[in-house]
Simulated scan of single mutants.
Amino acid sequence: MSQREWVAAAIRKIDADFNRSADTHLIPMDLPGFPGIDLYLKDESSHPTGSLKHRLARSLFLYALANGWLREGRPVIEASSGSTAVSEAYFARLLGLPFIAVMPATTSPEKIAAIEFHGGRCHLVQSACQLNAESEQLAQQTGGHFMDQFTYAERATDWRANNNIAESIFKQMADEPHPVPEWIVCSPGTGGTAATLGRYVSYRRHDTRILCADPQVSVFYDGYVAAAAGKPWRALTCEGGSRVEGIGRPRVEPSFIPTSVDAMVKVPDALSLAAMRHVTRQLGRRVGGSTGTNFIGVLQAAQWMREAGRGGSIVTILCDSGERYAHSYYDPQWYQRQGIDIQAADEQLAQMVQGQCPPVLPVCSLEPVNG
């Protein structure tokens, strides 16, 4: 089979897989302390590989195929903290390609098992800062292709339409009381989702604003602050890796586009995980830590709306299932090892949900947020 024939067959397989899949659900959830404000969670955990990253992996594979970067029988390598690797392993197996995930050694055992279930191999490194260099080296050694989600996430996704997450949200919101959300809240892993959402609402001329909630150990917020001030921001870094798996990075990734985001907040890990537990109780099933980070962003957006006397809707993303974090976020001993006071965080979160205690977070915005 020629390269052109193999690429055509590979794209046909991915399109067929897409046609077999239904859209993800949009779930309403009460915000008792904020009457007149409706909250919806876009449940990306219902994808075949269980997370928001299923969309990204599909786009990255189609982008690489269309560019001629993938070859029959040659491995695909990705730098990932877990969920993207799970999804890419799925698509690699669909195309009959070997897959290697370069991951931090701290990645949850559940994610490692999920990658291996889909036929992938895990290459663990001690520091998140090593991921890209190790991936590039493996690609050279094996003759494979480094997918590089952190560079290509924002350009691989068709932000105008093609059933991206933004288009899906607005279609599902069409019959709701407030069909055009005041805010859509997400969190940055690559920055690609924020870029897609921001570009789509601008292109479609919606009044919706995008709020990005960055976890505690991450440099995206600092990059945004610098960019908003007209200072150099691309080369900023921070020490350590994010405790909220799937989001936050020690460097400002190429897919992060500050001008596609209207505001950013910085969320302490203890609050993110308290919010994760709250959403879990409200839905009756476990969600991941990044959903908690998003929920804190929701409370901040709701506070701004209340201060401005505005009602309306907010949409955020339920990124993945909490079943992948049984050995971390749902293990009390993990919190003890991390020095996180669960009771204090839960009490603070309960007051925030009731509207009794406004979020006190570092905030940066391109324009006033409560006007």
Rank of each mutant, 00 (worst) to 15 (best):
R324F: 15
S328E: 12
I314H: 03
G289K: 02
A326N: 02
W304V: 11
G311E: 13
E307W: 12
Q282G: 12
E323T: 00
H327R: 15
I314Y: 01
F295T: 00
G284A: 10
S313R: 03
I314E: 01
L283M: 14
A326R: 11
R310N: 06
M305E: 12
T291Q: 09
D320S: 07
L283D: 06
D320Q: 06
A308C: 07
L318D: 00
A302Q: 00
T316L: 07
D320W: 08
C319T: 06
D320A: 03
V315H: 03
R306Y: 14
T291S: 15
I314P: 02
V298N: 12
I317N: 05
L283H: 06
S328T: 15
V315G: 02
H327D: 13
W304T: 10
V298P: 14
D320N: 07
R306E: 08
E307R: 14
L283C: 12
Q282S: 14
I317Y: 03
H327E: 13
G292P: 04
R324M: 07
S328C: 12
A302S: 08
A308H: 06
A326D: 01
R285G: 11
E323W: 02
A326W: 00
G292C: 13
A302D: 02
D320M: 04
G312L: 01
G297K: 12
G297Q: 10
L299A: 09
